[in-house]
């Protein structure tokens, strides 16, 4: 218990650092761009238009017939998946890229994966403006269940943090992980039911997709935002369970190896 308190005090001491690192990332991301932060909104919006054109216009059969409000459907999937991909990819290389700092001053090392996950989350929150715009534009109904969407979102944050911690640890020892993860997330994207209705897939694909935690986060989010239904018990359990398991595993792996990091950076 005492050590736990000690950890928390350590974290509390560095909360401003966390804030400053996030604001640094933000400044550097949009420095010298004319539209600046507006890109956080524009980017997902434009991407959604591209996918809409492809799967709404060019290959409408691929997505399955009866999806209500396809643009919102697309955007929800895309935003959540992009959050996962962006935060884990950034967290993966975060320890490596901050090697100059880690070699010189003592800072709790987990702050870097945590910072990147937070940065991804902030970005994701900005892109929700795009979602609101599209909802207004398509005159979608706003359901009372909308606040429930926060649950899949927060659990996805915890899940991403856990995955990011594992990836960051692995990358310190083997740089290959970065390349593998890129391929893996691309494959994962197609199995996350972002632009199609999983119901129309053949039986085994449907079963297979259910092993993908991202699918559950996206589906839970959509149910609350688009369908106006509450979360089912299995959704609550899978989302929460995966998040807790990923975080516990991530912390374990990270903590076990972090003292060796500095020798490999």
């Amino acid at each position: 218990m005492a050590t736990l308190k000690c950890y928390f005090n350590g974290f509390w001491r560095y909360r401003y650092l966390l804030y400053n690192l996030i604001s640094r990332d933000f400044k550097l991301k949009y420095r010298r761009s004319v539209l600046g932060v507006a890109w956080s909104v524009l980017n997902p919006l434009l991407m959604m238009l591209v996918m809409w054109a492809v799967f709404g216009g060019l290959f409408p059969d691929l997505r399955g017939g009866d999806i209500v409000n396809y643009p919102i459907f697309l955007l929800c999937g895309q935003l959540l998946f992009n959050f996962f991909r962006e935060s884990t990819t950034l967290a993966m290389s975060s320890v490596l890229y901050n090697a100059p700092l880690l070699r010189k001053v003592y800072i709790p090392k987990y702050i870097f994966p945590l910072e990147k996950t937070c940065f991804g989350f902030v970005n994701c929150c900005f892109s929700f403006i795009a979602l609101v715009l599209v909802m207004l534009f398509t005159l979608s109904p706003v359901h009372l269940t909308l606040p429930l969407a926060i649950y899949p979102l927060l659990t996805l944050f915890v899940f991403s943090l856990g995955v990011g911690l594992v990836l960051a640890t692995m990358t310190v020892f083997f740089r290959d992980v970065m390349h593998m993860w890129e391929v893996f997330t691309t494959a994962l994207m197609y199995f996350s039911a972002i632009f199609y209705d999983p119901e129309m897939m053949s039986g085994w694909v449907q079963q297979f997709i259910k092993f993908n935690p991202i699918y559950w986060y996206i589906t839970g989010f959509r149910r609350a935002v688009i369908n106006g239904e509450g979360l089912s018990l299995s959704m609550i359990l899978v989302c929460g369970g995966c998040a807790v398991a990923a975080l516990a595993f991530g912390l374990f792996v990270f903590k076990k190896n972090q003292d060796k990091f500095v020798l490999y950076l």
Partner: peptide
């Protein structure tokens, strides 16, 4: 890549 002003804050928080 950051300015001196921004770095003073960043480095200051690194030092706690």
């Amino acid at each position: 890549d950051l300015t001196a002003r921004e770095n003073i804050y960043l480095n200051g928080t690194v030092l706690g």
